[in-house]
Computed example of a mutant assay.
Amino acid sequence: MNIYIGNLSYSVKESDLKEVMEDYGTVDSVKLIIDRDTRRSKGFAFVEMPNDQEAKNAINELNGAEYQGRQMVLKEATPKESAPRRSY
């Protein structure tokens, strides 16, 4: 399951998130979203967990939990909808 994690402190690193999420099960990947121009975190990330039940447990336990001074938002990530192409 792909999990969206939002409202993160800008100082959070991918390794920090992996450590937190591994308390709930196996983590395949962590992708912290970085602003291309400033090279600074945008305050959200995506975590891939292969076991859906472990992922759901992590969401239930950590959604709203305080981490590094901020209340995290966790939910199942939904696929990004592609924007319609404009024709000129």
Rank of each mutant, 00 (worst) to 15 (best):
M1K: 11
M1V: 09
N2W: 06
N2P: 00
N2G: 03
I3G: 02
Y4I: 02
I5S: 03
I5R: 02
I5N: 00
G6A: 08
G6R: 01
N7S: 12
N7Y: 12
L8N: 00
L8R: 01
S9V: 02
S9L: 01
S9K: 09
Y10K: 12
Y10I: 05
S11V: 13
V12D: 02
V12I: 15
V12W: 00
K13D: 03
K13S: 12
E14A: 15
E14C: 09
E14W: 06
E14R: 10
S15F: 11
S15Y: 09
S15M: 12
S15C: 03
S15V: 13
D16V: 03
D16Q: 12
D16L: 07
L17G: 02
L17E: 00
K18E: 10
E19I: 05
E19Y: 10
E19S: 14
E19Q: 11
E19H: 12
V20M: 07
M21K: 04
D23A: 15
Y24N: 02
Y24I: 02
G25D: 01
G25V: 05
G25Y: 01
T26K: 11
D28N: 15
D28H: 12
S29Y: 07
V30M: 03
V30A: 05
K31G: 00
K31V: 10
L32W: 09
L32Q: 05
L32D: 06
L32A: 05
I33L: 13
I33E: 08
I34N: 09
D35Q: 08
R36G: 10
R36E: 10
D37G: 14
T38Q: 04
T38S: 15
R39T: 10
R39K: 15
K42V: 07
K42D: 02
G43R: 03
G43S: 05
F44E: 03
A45D: 01
A45V: 09
F46H: 06
F46D: 05
V47N: 02
V47C: 04
V47M: 09
E48H: 14
E48D: 13
M49Q: 05
M49F: 09
P50A: 10
P50T: 10
D52K: 14
D52A: 14
Q53H: 11
Q53E: 15
Q53D: 14
A55E: 01
A55G: 15
K56W: 08
K56V: 03
K56Q: 14
K56F: 11
N57A: 14
N57P: 00
N57C: 06
A58V: 07
A58Y: 01
N60F: 10
E61F: 04
E61M: 11
L62Q: 09
L62V: 10
N63E: 01
G64N: 05
G64A: 05
G64C: 06
Y67Q: 08
Y67H: 11
Y67E: 09
G69W: 04
G69N: 06
R70H: 12
R70V: 04
Q71V: 01
M72I: 11
L74C: 04
L74E: 02
K75P: 01
E76D: 05
E76I: 13
A77N: 06
T78C: 08
T78Q: 15
T78M: 11
P79Q: 13
P79N: 11
K80Q: 14
K80T: 12
K80W: 03
K80V: 10
E81C: 07
E81G: 13
S82Q: 15
A83I: 09
P84E: 12
P84V: 12
P84R: 14
P84H: 13
R85W: 07
R85D: 05
R86S: 09
R86L: 11
S87G: 12
